[in-house]
Protein backbone atom coordinates (compact mmCIF):
# COMPACT_ATOMS: atom_id res chain seq x y z
CA UNK A 1 0.00 0.00 0.00
CA UNK A 2 1.41 3.44 -0.89
CA UNK A 3 2.41 5.71 1.97
CA UNK A 4 0.72 9.08 2.47
CA UNK A 5 3.12 11.87 1.58
CA UNK A 6 4.68 13.82 -1.21
CA UNK A 7 6.04 10.83 -3.17
CA UNK A 8 5.37 11.24 -6.90
CA UNK A 9 2.57 9.19 -8.48
CA UNK A 10 3.63 5.70 -9.59
CA UNK A 11 2.05 3.75 -12.48
CA UNK A 12 1.63 -0.03 -12.71
CA UNK A 13 -0.48 -2.35 -14.88
CA UNK A 14 -3.78 -3.40 -13.26
CA UNK A 15 -4.79 -6.49 -15.21
CA UNK A 16 -4.26 -6.25 -18.98
CA UNK A 17 -6.57 -3.29 -19.73
CA UNK A 18 -5.98 -0.80 -16.91
CA UNK A 19 -3.30 1.17 -15.13
CA UNK A 20 -3.14 1.71 -11.38
CA UNK A 21 -1.78 5.10 -10.36
CA UNK A 22 -0.80 5.53 -6.71
CA UNK A 23 -0.97 9.17 -5.61
CA UNK A 24 -1.47 11.13 -2.38
CA UNK A 25 -4.55 12.82 -3.87
CA UNK A 26 -6.10 10.71 -6.64
CA UNK A 27 -8.78 13.33 -7.46
CA UNK A 28 -6.18 15.94 -8.43
CA UNK A 29 -4.34 13.45 -10.65
CA UNK A 30 -7.68 12.59 -12.26
CA UNK A 31 -8.27 16.24 -13.19
CA UNK A 32 -4.78 16.51 -14.63
CA UNK A 33 -5.23 13.38 -16.79
CA UNK A 34 -8.67 14.49 -18.02
CA UNK A 35 -7.17 17.76 -19.26
CA UNK A 36 -5.48 15.68 -22.01
CA UNK A 37 -7.05 12.20 -22.01
CA UNK A 38 -5.01 9.47 -23.75
CA UNK A 39 -6.44 7.43 -26.64
CA UNK A 40 -8.62 4.48 -25.64
CA UNK A 41 -9.39 5.75 -22.12
CA UNK A 42 -12.84 4.47 -21.03
CA UNK A 43 -12.98 5.33 -17.32
CA UNK A 44 -10.84 7.08 -14.75
CA UNK A 45 -11.88 5.97 -11.27
CA UNK A 46 -10.57 7.27 -7.93
CA UNK A 47 -10.10 5.20 -4.80
CA UNK A 48 -8.63 6.22 -1.45
CA UNK A 49 -4.93 5.98 -2.35
CA UNK A 50 -5.03 5.10 -6.05
CA UNK A 51 -6.88 5.74 -9.27
CA UNK A 52 -7.49 3.32 -12.12
CA UNK A 53 -7.30 4.33 -15.78
CA UNK A 54 -9.40 1.75 -17.61
CA UNK A 55 -8.77 1.37 -21.36
CA UNK A 56 -10.34 -0.44 -24.31
CA UNK A 57 -9.12 -4.06 -24.20
CA UNK A 58 -6.08 -4.71 -26.40
CA UNK A 59 -4.41 -1.39 -25.52
CA UNK A 60 -0.61 -1.28 -25.30
CA UNK A 61 -0.32 -0.45 -21.58
CA UNK A 62 3.30 0.70 -21.80
CA UNK A 63 2.33 3.26 -24.45
CA UNK A 64 -0.73 4.33 -22.42
CA UNK A 65 1.45 4.81 -19.33
CA UNK A 66 3.85 6.97 -21.32
CA UNK A 67 0.91 9.04 -22.60
CA UNK A 68 -0.33 9.94 -19.12
CA UNK A 69 3.11 10.44 -17.52
CA UNK A 70 3.22 14.19 -18.36
CA UNK A 71 -0.12 14.73 -16.59
CA UNK A 72 1.27 13.10 -13.44
CA UNK A 73 4.11 15.59 -13.32
CA UNK A 74 1.66 18.49 -12.96
CA UNK A 75 -0.88 18.55 -10.18
CA UNK A 76 -1.73 22.23 -10.26
CA UNK A 77 -5.41 21.76 -11.12
CA UNK A 78 -8.03 22.24 -8.42
CA UNK A 79 -11.34 20.41 -7.98
CA UNK A 80 -13.84 22.09 -10.25
CA UNK A 81 -16.87 22.89 -8.08
CA UNK A 82 -17.26 24.66 -4.72
CA UNK A 83 -18.10 22.43 -1.75
CA UNK A 84 -21.74 22.26 -0.63
CA UNK A 85 -23.13 21.04 2.69
CA UNK A 86 -25.78 18.33 2.47
CA UNK A 87 -27.86 17.19 5.45
CA UNK A 88 -28.90 13.54 5.64
CA UNK A 89 -31.93 12.96 7.92
CA UNK A 90 -31.28 9.54 9.46
CA UNK A 91 -33.39 7.12 11.51
CA UNK A 92 -30.83 5.24 13.64
CA UNK A 93 -31.20 1.71 15.00
CA UNK A 94 -34.08 -0.77 14.89
CA UNK A 95 -34.68 -2.64 11.61
CA UNK A 96 -33.08 0.33 9.79
CA UNK A 97 -29.77 -0.14 11.62
CA UNK A 98 -29.40 -3.77 12.74
CA UNK A 99 -25.71 -3.37 13.65
CA UNK A 100 -26.22 -0.37 15.98
CA UNK A 101 -26.84 -2.35 19.20
CA UNK A 102 -24.19 -5.09 18.74
CA UNK A 103 -21.63 -2.51 17.62
CA UNK A 104 -22.33 -0.18 20.57
CA UNK A 105 -21.99 -3.13 22.90
CA UNK A 106 -18.70 -4.30 21.38
CA UNK A 107 -17.30 -0.74 21.50
CA UNK A 108 -18.39 -0.26 25.13
CA UNK A 109 -20.73 2.62 24.20
CA UNK A 110 -24.41 3.18 24.82
CA UNK A 111 -26.47 3.13 21.58
CA UNK A 112 -27.21 6.86 22.06
CA UNK A 113 -23.48 7.63 22.52
CA UNK A 114 -22.71 5.83 19.26
CA UNK A 115 -25.46 7.81 17.46
CA UNK A 116 -24.15 11.08 18.94
CA UNK A 117 -20.60 10.28 17.84
CA UNK A 118 -21.66 9.41 14.29
CA UNK A 119 -24.04 12.37 13.90
CA UNK A 120 -21.78 14.99 15.48
CA UNK A 121 -18.95 14.49 12.99
CA UNK A 122 -18.55 16.56 9.83
CA UNK A 123 -17.87 14.44 6.74
CA UNK A 124 -16.32 15.11 3.33
CA UNK A 125 -16.87 13.05 0.14
CA UNK A 126 -13.41 11.66 -0.70
CA UNK A 127 -14.45 9.63 -3.77
CA UNK A 128 -17.41 7.82 -5.35
CA UNK A 129 -17.58 4.10 -5.95
CA UNK A 130 -18.85 0.70 -4.96
CA UNK A 131 -22.32 1.42 -6.43
CA UNK A 132 -23.99 4.23 -8.44
CA UNK A 133 -24.10 7.34 -6.25
CA UNK A 134 -22.23 5.74 -3.32
CA UNK A 135 -19.94 8.34 -1.69
CA UNK A 136 -17.04 7.42 0.58
CA UNK A 137 -17.33 9.92 3.47
CA UNK A 138 -14.19 10.85 5.39
CA UNK A 139 -14.40 12.22 8.91
CA UNK A 140 -15.60 9.22 10.91
CA UNK A 141 -14.53 9.58 14.58
CA UNK A 142 -11.59 7.26 15.31
CA UNK A 143 -13.61 5.41 18.00
CA UNK A 144 -16.04 4.20 15.31
CA UNK A 145 -13.45 2.63 13.01
CA UNK A 146 -14.49 -1.01 12.65
CA UNK A 147 -13.74 -3.65 10.04
CA UNK A 148 -16.26 -4.57 7.36
CA UNK A 149 -18.01 -7.91 7.71
CA UNK A 150 -16.03 -11.02 6.76
CA UNK A 151 -18.68 -11.88 4.19
CA UNK A 152 -21.00 -9.24 2.70
CA UNK A 153 -24.77 -9.41 3.31
CA UNK A 154 -26.52 -10.41 0.07
CA UNK A 155 -28.97 -7.48 0.38
CA UNK A 156 -28.78 -4.11 2.16
CA UNK A 157 -31.81 -1.82 1.62
CA UNK A 158 -31.53 1.50 -0.26
CA UNK A 159 -30.88 4.48 2.02
CA UNK A 160 -29.04 2.48 4.68
CA UNK A 161 -26.40 4.54 6.55
CA UNK A 162 -23.34 2.43 7.35
CA UNK A 163 -19.72 2.54 8.47
CA UNK A 164 -16.55 0.54 7.73
CA UNK A 165 -12.86 1.33 8.17
CA UNK A 166 -12.29 5.09 8.05
CA UNK A 167 -15.55 5.84 6.19
CA UNK A 168 -19.24 6.35 6.54
CA UNK A 169 -21.51 5.83 3.54
CA UNK A 170 -25.12 5.53 2.38
CA UNK A 171 -26.31 2.64 0.16
CA UNK A 172 -28.08 4.32 -2.81
CA UNK A 173 -29.99 1.18 -3.89
CA UNK A 174 -30.70 -2.30 -2.59
CA UNK A 175 -27.39 -4.12 -3.02
CA UNK A 176 -25.02 -6.59 -1.39
CA UNK A 177 -22.91 -4.90 1.28
CA UNK A 178 -20.26 -5.65 3.86
CA UNK A 179 -20.48 -2.49 6.00
CA UNK A 180 -21.98 -2.17 9.51
CA UNK A 181 -25.53 -0.81 9.26
CA UNK A 182 -26.46 2.04 11.65
CA UNK A 183 -29.65 3.58 10.24
CA UNK A 184 -31.53 4.72 7.18
CA UNK A 185 -32.47 7.85 5.22
CA UNK A 186 -35.27 8.41 2.68
CA UNK A 187 -33.20 10.72 0.47
CA UNK A 188 -32.56 9.65 -3.16
CA UNK A 189 -28.82 9.26 -3.60
CA UNK A 190 -28.85 8.33 -7.30
CA UNK A 191 -31.22 9.28 -10.15
CA UNK A 192 -29.82 8.29 -13.55
CA UNK A 193 -32.35 10.51 -15.38
CA UNK A 194 -31.38 13.69 -13.48
CA UNK A 195 -29.02 16.24 -15.03
CA UNK A 196 -26.72 15.53 -12.09
CA UNK A 197 -27.32 11.81 -11.36
CA UNK A 198 -25.71 11.74 -7.91
CA UNK A 199 -26.86 13.63 -4.76
CA UNK A 200 -23.27 13.77 -3.52
CA UNK A 201 -20.08 14.71 -5.34
CA UNK A 202 -16.42 14.61 -4.33
CA UNK A 203 -15.61 17.52 -2.05
CA UNK A 204 -19.17 17.90 -0.67
CA UNK A 205 -19.58 18.28 3.11
CA UNK A 206 -22.14 15.93 4.69
CA UNK A 207 -23.91 15.91 8.07
CA UNK A 208 -26.19 13.21 9.50
CA UNK A 209 -29.26 14.57 11.32
CA UNK A 210 -30.91 12.02 13.68
CA UNK A 211 -34.68 11.80 13.18
CA UNK A 212 -37.44 9.64 14.65
CA UNK A 213 -39.00 8.99 11.25
CA UNK A 214 -37.06 9.13 7.96
CA UNK A 215 -38.34 12.25 6.19
CA UNK A 216 -38.89 12.24 2.44
Amino acid sequence: MPAEGPSPPSIQPLGDSALRIAAPNPALVRHAILAAPPAGLLDLVCGHHTLAAIFSPGIDLARAAAAIAPALARQDLAPCHPPRTIDIPTLYGGPSGPDLLPLASSLGLSPQALIDLHASASYTVRFMGFAPGFAYLEGLPAQLRVQRLDSPRPRVPAGTVAIAGPYSGIYPADSPGGWRLLGRTNLTLFDPLAASPTLLQPGDRVRFIPTRVPTP
Binding site: G15, H48, T50
Partner: peptide, 15 residues
Protein backbone atom coordinates in the same frame (compact mmCIF):
# COMPACT_ATOMS: atom_id res chain seq x y z
CA UNK B 1 -8.70 1.01 1.88
CA UNK B 2 -11.31 0.90 -0.90
CA UNK B 3 -9.62 1.11 -4.28
CA UNK B 4 -10.80 0.87 -7.93
CA UNK B 5 -11.65 -2.54 -9.36
CA UNK B 6 -10.78 -3.03 -13.05
CA UNK B 7 -12.74 -5.37 -15.36
CA UNK B 8 -11.97 -9.00 -14.53
CA UNK B 9 -10.59 -8.21 -11.07
CA UNK B 10 -10.43 -11.13 -8.63
CA UNK B 11 -11.19 -10.24 -5.00
CA UNK B 12 -10.46 -12.54 -2.07
CA UNK B 13 -12.76 -12.46 0.95
CA UNK B 14 -11.48 -13.42 4.42
CA UNK B 15 -13.59 -16.59 4.13
Amino acid sequence: TSEPTPPGAVQRTPE
